Amino acid sequence: MPDPTHPLDRRHDAAHHRMPPSAWVYLMGAAVDEHTARWNTARYAELPLLPRVCVDVSDVDTSCTLLGTRLDHPILLAPVALQRLFHPDGEHATLAGAAAAGTLPVISMESSVSLRDLSGAGSPPFWFHLYVQRDRGLTRELVARAEDAGAEALVTTLDTPVAGHRYRQQAAMTQLPDGVRRANLPDDADPRLAGGCLDPSVTWTDIEQLASATRLPVVGKGVLHPDDALRACAAGLAAVVVSNHGGRNLDTAAATVDQLPAVAEALAGRIPVLVDGGIRRGTDVLKAIALGAAAVLIGRPYVWGLATDGADGVRAVVDLLRDELATAMALCGTPRLELVDEKVLAR
Results as ranks from 00 to 15, higher is better:
180 V>C: 11
180 V>T: 04
180 V>N: 12
181 R>H: 10
181 R>D: 05
181 R>A: 10
181 R>W: 03
181 R>I: 02
181 R>L: 01
181 R>G: 03
181 R>E: 12
182 R>V: 04
182 R>P: 04
182 R>Y: 14
182 R>Q: 10
182 R>A: 11
183 A>T: 02
183 A>G: 04
183 A>P: 03
183 A>F: 10
183 A>D: 01
183 A>L: 05
184 N>G: 10
184 N>K: 02
184 N>S: 08
184 N>L: 12
184 N>C: 10
184 N>W: 07
185 L>C: 07
185 L>K: 08
185 L>F: 08
185 L>Q: 05
185 L>D: 08
185 L>T: 01
186 P>A: 09
186 P>D: 04
186 P>R: 06
186 P>S: 08
186 P>K: 03
187 D>L: 14
187 D>G: 15
187 D>W: 09
187 D>R: 09
188 D>M: 02
188 D>G: 03
188 D>S: 09
188 D>L: 08
188 D>N: 12
188 D>W: 02
188 D>F: 07
189 A>G: 08
189 A>K: 06
189 A>V: 14
189 A>R: 11
190 D>P: 12
191 P>R: 07
191 P>T: 10
191 P>W: 14
191 P>C: 13
191 P>Y: 14
191 P>F: 14
192 R>L: 15
192 R>P: 07
192 R>H: 14
192 R>N: 13
192 R>D: 15
192 R>F: 15
193 L>G: 08
193 L>D: 05
194 A>V: 08
194 A>C: 09
194 A>F: 12
194 A>G: 08
195 G>H: 10
195 G>E: 11
195 G>P: 07
195 G>D: 11
196 G>M: 10
196 G>P: 07
196 G>W: 05
196 G>I: 06
196 G>V: 07
196 G>S: 13
196 G>T: 03
197 C>W: 14
197 C>D: 10
197 C>L: 15
197 C>P: 01
197 C>Y: 15
198 L>G: 03
198 L>E: 03
198 L>R: 04
198 L>K: 05
198 L>M: 09
199 D>K: 05
200 P>Q: 06
200 P>D: 09
200 P>T: 03
201 S>H: 07
202 V>R: 09
202 V>E: 00
202 V>P: 01
202 V>D: 02
202 V>N: 03
202 V>T: 02
202 V>M: 08
203 T>V: 13
203 T>C: 11
203 T>S: 14
203 T>P: 06
203 T>G: 14
204 W>F: 12
204 W>Y: 12
204 W>M: 05
204 W>L: 09
204 W>H: 10
204 W>A: 07
205 T>K: 07
205 T>C: 11
205 T>I: 09
205 T>V: 12
205 T>G: 15
206 D>R: 02
206 D>F: 05
206 D>Q: 04
206 D>S: 05
207 I>E: 01
207 I>Y: 13
207 I>G: 04
208 E>C: 03
208 E>S: 09
209 Q>H: 06
209 Q>T: 05
209 Q>S: 04
209 Q>K: 00
209 Q>G: 01
210 L>R: 00
210 L>V: 00
210 L>C: 00
211 A>D: 00
211 A>S: 00
211 A>Y: 00
211 A>K: 00
211 A>E: 01
211 A>C: 11
211 A>P: 00
